Amino acid sequence: MKVLLEIPDHKASSLMEVLQSISYVRAKPLTEAKAILLEEIREAVEEMQLIKAGKKQARNAEDFLNEL
């Protein structure tokens, strides 16, 4: 199982030490860029689920591209 934790920077090193001391746990910090990417992907998946459930309306692809 994989778990993503959000920990304040000033507490992260002590938690990483604890996690790394457990033989069956592999822990490695994410770079800020990867953390941002994962958050954006999570938000996109949630938005797609809302659209599929009919709770949110999808945007026209042409409008989206014109916005860029």
Rank of each mutant, 00 (worst) to 15 (best):
E40P: 05
A33M: 11
E46Y: 06
L68Y: 01
E62Y: 06
M48R: 08
T31H: 12
V3R: 13
N66H: 00
M48D: 06
N60P: 00
E39H: 12
I36Y: 09
L19M: 04
D9C: 07
Q49T: 00
K56F: 00
E62N: 05
D63R: 05
I36P: 01
E32Y: 11
E32D: 14
T31Q: 13
G54R: 02
L37I: 05
R42Q: 10
K56L: 04
E67Y: 06
S14P: 04
S13D: 15
L19S: 02
V45G: 01
K56I: 00
I41A: 13
K52E: 03
E67Q: 07
K2G: 11
Q49M: 04
E32G: 11
E47V: 04
L5E: 11
S14W: 08
S14G: 12
E62V: 08
L38I: 14
Q49R: 06
E43R: 08
S23M: 05
K55L: 07
A61G: 02
A61P: 06
I7Q: 13
L37M: 09
E17T: 11
L5Q: 12
M1E: 09
L19H: 01
L37D: 13
A12H: 09
A12E: 13
I7K: 12
M1A: 13
A58R: 05
L30S: 08
V18K: 14
S13N: 14
V25M: 10
P29E: 07
K34I: 07
